[in-house]
Amino acid sequence: MDGSDDKRLDDTLIALRRILRATELYERELAQAAGLTPAKLRVLQILSGRKEGNATPTAMANQMGVRQATVTALVDQLENRGMVRRERSSTDRRQTHVVIAPAGVEALRSAPSALQQHFVANYQKLEAWEQQMILSVLNRVALMLNAADIEAAPVLTIGDIRQDRGRG
């Protein structure tokens, strides 16, 4: 590798680090402002965005692209903090619905704008070919990092979204 190759490699690694760092900083800001992790915030957002005001854990898992066990762990943690509650379905007693509680609504209100909301707003301004290029490059980077088979939700967070890590 010559000097320009070294510089390009360093610039690429710096760009990756900036993405990771932005995610870390957002998590810290969210934890301080609302006492939540990005994954828990996403659960509250899903519930508040539903016309009926509730969702089954299965529906949330499908929407988030994670296993139901992951959503169950997140809901358990939110329920322990009084931000959501579980209710039996009135039409099918075997089903449980998760409902956002007033404390969850307040946490949503006090939360800073989600990092992925900034990304989505800017991403949607791009032409379709630019969006496809970004997707292709990021998928290639995931392959290069041996991360292509790691379960991941469309939530910009560091680590396993089921883990509380002491931050809410």
Rank of each mutant, 00 (worst) to 15 (best):
N139G: 12
K51T: 13
A152F: 08
G104K: 05
R86H: 00
A22C: 14
W129E: 13
V105C: 03
L30M: 09
V137A: 14
S89W: 01
N54I: 06
M83D: 05
M60H: 03
R140D: 05
N54M: 03
T58G: 06
T12E: 01
R88M: 00
Q95T: 12
A128G: 06
R18L: 12
K40V: 08
V120D: 10
R17G: 14
E27F: 07
D92H: 05
T23Q: 11
S48C: 02
Q163K: 04
G35C: 00
R167I: 10
L145Y: 03
E52R: 15
T70R: 00
R165G: 08
M83H: 08
T56S: 05
I150T: 12
T72C: 07
R93W: 01
A111I: 13
Q132T: 14
Q131S: 12
V43E: 02
R17F: 06
A61V: 08
S48Q: 05
A33L: 10
A61L: 08
D149I: 00
A59N: 06
M60A: 06
I46N: 09
Y123R: 09
Y26H: 10
D2I: 03
D6S: 12
R28Q: 11
L145V: 12
E79Q: 15
L126F: 02
Q95H: 02
V141W: 05
